[in-house]
Nucleic acid binder design. Sequence first.
DNA 1: ACCTGAACACCGTTCAAGT
DNA 2: ACCTGAACACCGTTCAAGT
Lengths: 229, 229
Amino acid sequence: MARPSKPLLSPEIIVGAALEMTAETGGFTVPELAKRLGVRPSSLYNHVSGRAEIIELIRRQMHEAMAVRVDVNADWPDVVRLVASAHRASMARHPWLIPLLATSPADLDTSITTIENVATVLSKAGFTDQDVLMTIAMMDIITIGASLDLVSPQNLYPPEVLAETATLARITRSVPAGTPRADAAFEFTVELVIDALRTRLSRSRRAAVAADAATAAATGAATARHATG
Amino acid sequence: MARPSKPLLSPEIIVGAALEMTAETGGFTVPELAKRLGVRPSSLYNHVSGRAEIIELIRRQMHEAMAVRVDVNADWPDVVRLVASAHRASMARHPWLIPLLATSPADLDTSITTIENVATVLSKAGFTDQDVLMTIAMMDIITIGASLDLVSPQNLYPPEVLAETATLARITRSVPAGTPRADAAFEFTVELVIDALRTRLSRSRRAAVAADAATAAATGAATARHATG
DNA sequence: ACCTGAACACCGTTCAAGT
DNA sequence: ACCTGAACACCGTTCAAGT
């Protein structure tokens, strides 16, 4: 029962079991993990350096799971919707890891491709570099916040609390609580933001056109001379 | 050295020390907490039921810290800005508790007053009940996401990662990285959202006016008869 | 009422011993 | 190379004993 002819474990097997366990119980411990794998706790240390590395591997895998195939020719609002939804769904699957994900740099892995594609789409649509960067950061903020919101209790404002309020009580009463609150809030936010970006885009386009016109008028004679350069 | 004439501990003292410790090290353990208080671990159990209750008390205190005095007569964009900033700052002070805060219902405490006041301001400004609720949820999403973003590394996209990209690399190069990235992203998001809410508000006002006009036209004769009712 | 010391179950990790 | 068993330091918690 020492060294088996075929290894019983591997980093992949360990991470897989750990992911299962976190999905079921919201966390994992090394001894429980070993039991689930039919092995002694110390055996795991032949394949991973410890609990920290298991978590790190899970984090990597989540980042990879967040890779979304983006059609670089699609409309930018569709891309924003798609990527935001996918990221939110991926993160909400492992809420206790969200702080970890949010506070760790992007990996050398597939998820960076998604972001690169989003940047390309936004850039092609005419957003300024600054706006592209800010929009991507904003999407991060919203998906992280919304994924935590997604795993929060359906009833954020219990009746006892509402009893002490006037406006809030009236409002929560008058709004149909039917559709999942978190989904509605996420959709509202994304659509609002897309709307705002749209007007921002058309404003900056108009400004660009005006600037071009002004430049053209001011340097008209000069440009005419070497128009083919 | 058994029972002192004056108690050495109290829930407040324990929570205070725990908060100090989390601020310094990002967490706390019961034995360390006891050591800091010059007491044996078991002593704490005379005042709190256990580690879980200490965390719960911290959570309550954070909720209370997030209470913001809102001027109910201020402009709604100012209120949104103020409350969002204050919440983000409070949460970022204890990042490891953010998931806990986000996933626990509002307390019977002071923080609900802040929300009630925000609701009142938005309502008075003319937003529909639905929009008020969605806006508050959206503010939650944004402040939670932004507070986690605030504690993430300054350099989310390390050079090795950017090497594999074209658009993203160009953009991050062309944008001055001077001002703290997280602050800029938060401000961008809040202002964008306020802008969008502003146009949404004026749209719904126009719609209301139009509806009123239509109603008035249709029921003109009838209304004229009991205009004083 | 409130602090102590001993005790327990559990955790993460190390390492010599086995094949 | 890879699993095991014993061991260690640490954690959260309980409880009888003391004043």
